[in-house]
Nucleic acid binder design. Structure first.
Lengths: 185, 185
DNA sequence: CGAAATGTTCAACAAAAAATGAACAAAGTG
DNA sequence: CACTTTGTTCATTTTTTGTTGAACATTTCG
């Protein structure tokens, strides 16, 4: 409520937005950013995503959109898109702060949630797409002229298609198991 | 040995290299390629990798470098680099074929091996790099002026750094477990 | 309502990644 | 050896992806 109380001041635009922390990253923050940018790279995600997440990860209080843009010296566009992606993964949540209209962002730090978001948004769709394509593959296989049906070649291809189905089954079974394994022990 | 026998023919360069299969992909092969290219995309790997692997996956016999280049209508450069990457992952092996000097490539189709190759080549290095950065993070944290050491902010950051170490431990433990889970049941 | 604050979208630009192909090495072959 | 086959390297081009910033909503406030 103290926040609600000081929400009135009409001076903010002139300067005090800058009040909630220096524009410059501290040495420790720099290390966090460096670490997460590397991590982002390794997953082939845009660097900006790593920067934003790192900043939030290293911040005790929720940060506003503007604070992120300023501290990371990043364009509004990137910040907006980056935050959207992070939210879609469940890696960042928007929190409500009384008396402040602006969004305030916080990092989700539970590994299990992060991984499960990643699986849900990136891997699951790929598996689904894979299922579709496997379907089409079957169709193509059945379209093979029936004269050729008994050839070794045909048998081989059928075999390989089955192997793919095995892969899919494995993925559908073991990925959720992996997530469970990550439970806060 | 039949291969060794017909290895002599001196006509090959003029045309018959094309002899070992049509340059055009069959409808079924096209489906395989389509499927694996999609898969490659989902892992953010170059499309050429998906094409090559698909072709080998769908081929009963080992294929030569040249056959790959021709059937996929791909540059030699791409094929060379793609094959190198695939081999580094253990996704493709070179087999010896008697009487033929050329390399012959085969796809590894055991999911467990593919995943473990992926972890070894892509994830493990990232984890190592992460460990390094975590080290530097600790250093930066210890470099904080001792006056500030007792602040809530400092405690928070220390906490977050520990959280990261927890992530690492989790990764080191559960990824190998995942691979085991993929064992040919 | 009009002005200010807060975000989002999207066309244009920049940077990064992948594909190409010609030059180069290596290893047979006659 | 000279010559061919086989494959790799790498500078260049092409394609893809990410970033920027200005225009455009939307909401709040006086």
């Amino acid at each position: 409520m103290s926040v609600a109380m000081r929400a009135k001041p009409r001076v903010r635009s002139a300067l005090p937005a800058t009040k909630s922390g220096p524009d410059r990253l501290s040495p420790v923050e720099i290390e966090f950013v460096d670490l997460f940018v590397g991590l982002a790279r390794s997953v082939k995600a845009p660097k900006s995503i790593g920067e934003i997440y790192a900043l939030l990860f290293a911040s005790a209080e929720p940060l506003t959109f503007d604070a992120i843009v300023r501290k990371l010296a990043m364009s509004r566009g990137s910040a907006s898109q980056g935050l959207r992606l992070l939210r879609s993964f469940g890696a960042v949540k928007a929190t409500y702060v009384a008396g402040d209209r602006r969004d305030h962002f916080v990092a989700e730090t539970e590994l299990r949630k992060l991984v499960s978001g990643f699986l849900r948004e990136r891997i699951a769709p790929a598996l689904e797409g894979g299922a579709d394509r496997l379907g089409r593959l079957s169709v193509a296989l059945n379209a093979v002229p029936s004269g050729t049906r008994r050839s070794a070649e045909f048998e081989f291809l059928r075999h390989r298609a089955e192997r793919l189905q095995g892969w899919q089954r494995m993925a559908r079974e073991s990925l959720p198991a992996l997530v469970k394994m990550l439970d806060p022990t």
